[in-house]
Amino acid sequence: MKPLLEVKALTKQYPLPRKGFRKESGAVQAVSGVDLAVMPGETLGIVGESGCGKSTLGLMIARLLEPTAGQVLFEGKDLLKVEGDELRKARRDLQFVFQDPYSSLNPRMKVSEIIAEPMQIHGLYKGVELTKEVSRLLQAVGLSQQQGDRYPHEFSGGQRQRIGIARALSLNPKLIICDEPISALDVSIQAQILNLLKDLQAEYKLTYMFISHGLPSIRFISDRIAVMYLGRIVEIATKQQIFSSVKHPYTEALLQAVPIPDPSLRKKERIILRGELPNPANPPKGCAFHTRCPYATERCQQEQPQLIEVEAGHYAACHYPLDKRKEEGH
């Protein structure tokens, strides 16, 4: 099977303001050289902490942000090379659900107008058919037809996120990029939205890229998971591989840092990462994680590890992937 989406060496740099006349200004690497592929029908979860580049990555794939370098191949076509009409057509297959359901809906438009607008722009439906389509979409996301006549401010956060999802669905896309779609919602509402996304995926054969900082929700929704740190993917594998045989020390620490809702599992001894995220304008030499890694050696300070296949389908960017370390007695 061919991948639906392929990302090659995708990079985003933000130049820093110059200091003085002569000094080189330098740049922040928000995303550096990310490679990944998404197969049709699967959900790829992207997880990482703030500043790791996960949102930047999502925005670049949808071309809501111009990459500095690299390729975004959607069904084999390089999205970065198309412009104007062609880009608009390509975007039909690739939609976005945003984090904040308050700022991503136009407050002056009725919900039915918000959902109809993409279809009008692309000239898909008109008149009665358009109205029909809007009410079908409202129903698909669990809202009633009458609710289409209201304005966004009349809805709760969870309902607004449903509206955002209906809008993304309206063009019958192949891929939906969800950028932290549940982070702004209450706990009891998060479960509703996660279930809805899963149901819609089955019904419309959707492919998802699900960006989140929350590992439990990533586990629930994803088939494969990519872990990002300081602009790079440090580990990518199937959900089962990540949770049963983690390879990268950062992923391990991330897994252990998540508080578990069970007081009998209070861990007395766990790895708590010391230190903080390094400055992305001046990333550490060698492995970017070596400053916080409990296992770092001299090699890690010098040599940057490449993302290599440690096991079938399981890639990690670490000189000493975790299982091997145990065998070699490090």
């Binding site: 009891s188 998060q190 479960a191 279930n195 439990p216 586990r219 089962q240």
Partner: peptide, 12 residues
């Protein structure tokens, strides 16, 4: 309604 980090679930 919490997704569990130690289990695979089909539905929440």
């Amino acid at each position: 309604s919490l997704p569990k980090i130690h289990e695979d679930e089909q539905r929440l």
